[in-house]
Nucleic acid binder design. Structure first.
Lengths: 204, 204
DNA sequence: ATATAAATTATTATATCTTCTAATTTTCCT
DNA sequence: AGGAAAATTAGAAGATATAATAATTTATAT
């Protein structure tokens, strides 16, 4: 079920697209090309693993705009920016905004491949982490409001007796909620639960 | 006991140093100037809060070299790189290596000040976090080897009985170690201990 | 209004954890 | 060799947590 990663190329210049496509093929990497940012936005599928190569200067949506839009949607694939006429402020902006690289054309084929491989690895790592997070979130969503409340107390290390008094309910109720929390979150131990709470950012 | 932050300026050009010094004075910021990377390395004091402004092109150690050296020493003050003749690859390298900004001379005074303020804030935040970490580390260092071993099992959520069998010692011993760990680490609850273990990176 | 889910409580039995006290054995440094 | 720190163990009492079962009261949605 593990999909092969692809390199998603977004550039209005047909020459560049085909050159990159060939380059990727030469090392057995899949690629998909888009001639504009809009075309990518219309067709992209976050379930597909891989990385992006975006040209800065394009009609319509620029590579940097596209980067910003994806970021706003909380979509964070590794992005390599390429440009023919880059300047320093632009490069700084792209990298601080999270681009893994900012490369000027014409680029060196081997270093481009190195960057792509690094980016693909990073994506695979991120995907592993985020699929785990999604699983935990789906468990968390199953909790009732009261159970979530109890969870917060539990991860603070409070004892059932204290939780009961702070929530003005009986200890038995706390125990019932607590055991439901453990069950629904699929946590075997308190430390499992803490780990999950961390990923859910319930803990600072 | 909270020291005022300073801006540490490293540039071989006396003109630039005095201009920056005046700029910082104009908004009430302390600054210290160094005419070379070596001079900074000879005199720097990590206990002083603030940020760095490094020129790229200097005789001897360049700004980027200095950045790399500090990084190798695990010293991570916020660094603003300035340069008269920057290029894109250099900017990308500096930023990916952790520089908060890469600014070309001549720079805009107000935007420089904005960056400096941001950098100083970031430093203050880092210092708060790292002083807490140092406290925890000093506690951790007090643990005996055996206690550290038990700690690892504990944060995995293993029960005393299991720990005892895996370590081939009696449950009583585990209990003794465990209580010493809680005491030495100054942890009131298991969740406290887990939080500390996270900061110590004992947990993935 | 009436099922359904959620929240509440209690009881009992068992398992664990914590704390305290006390003592013995190992290990390591000077 | 002698002493200090570390590691080891035991027992007992009290506090907590867990698991299983059962029952009642609110909410809530169709």
């Amino acid at each position: 079920m593990n999909q092969e990663p692809s390199v998603f190329i977004v550039d209005d210049d047909e020459q560049v697209r085909s050159a990159l496509t060939l380059l990727m093929e030469s090392v057995g990497l899949n690629s998909e090309s888009f001639s504009s940012g809009q075309e990518y936005l219309d067709q992209f599928d976050t379930s597909k693993p891989g990385c992006l190569i975006l040209d800065v200067r394009m009609p319509g949506i620029s590579g940097l705009d596209l980067q910003a839009r994806l970021s706003a949607e909380k979509i964070h694939p590794p992005i390599i920016i390429i440009t023919g006429h880059g300047d320093v402020p632009m490069a700084v902006r792209a990298v601080t905004a999270g681009a893994v690289d900012f490369i000027e054309k014409p680029f060196n084929n081997q270093s481009m491949l190195d960057n792509v491989h690094r980016a693909i690895e990073q994506d695979a790592k991120q995907r592993g982490e985020s699929s785990r997070l999604e699983e935990i979130e789906s468990h968390y969503d199953e909790l009732t409001p009261r159970e979530k409340e109890v969870l917060l107390y539990v991860i603070e290390g409070k004892r059932n007796k204290i939780i009961a008094s702070e929530m003005n309910i009986s200890q038995s109720t706390v125990e019932a909620h607590r055991s439901k929390v453990m069950e629904k979150m699929a946590a075997n131990t308190l430390s499992d639960l803490m780990r999950m709470a961390l990923l859910l950012k319930l803990i600072t």
